[in-house]
């Protein structure tokens, strides 16, 4: 399997996927930084989780980590 030709073949799938994952990460990251009152954990921990764990990390943050008072 040739890496470059493989990438070119599946660009219509890969580009939107990367953009979406990135949007999700940025949305969560902005929220983590702007609202420093978490249910548990520290800012550093949540930034780590949101950036490293793709897809699962942001969901976890919004469900379990986000503070109640908006």
């Amino acid at each position: 399997m040739n890496g470059i030709s493989f990438l070119m073949d599946h660009l219509p799938l890969l580009i939107p996927l990367i953009i979406l994952q990135f949007t999700l990460m940025i949305t969560a990251l902005i929220h983590v930084i702007k609202h420093p009152d978490y249910r548990f954990g520290t800012k550093g921990m949540w930034i780590f989780i949101v950036v490293i764990l793709q897809l699962i990390g942001p969901v976890f943050y919004f469900v379990f980590g986000k503070g109640d008072n908006e």
Binding site: L24, T27, P58, K66
Partner: peptide
């Protein structure tokens, strides 16, 4: 405003793309 809807939409879009991939 709690960006719940946005998160849901992005996740389901990602799920949609991942299947054929």
């Amino acid at each position: 405003r709690t960006s719940r809807l946005l998160i849901l939409m992005i996740i389901f879009l990602i799920l949609g793309i991942m299947n054929p991939l």
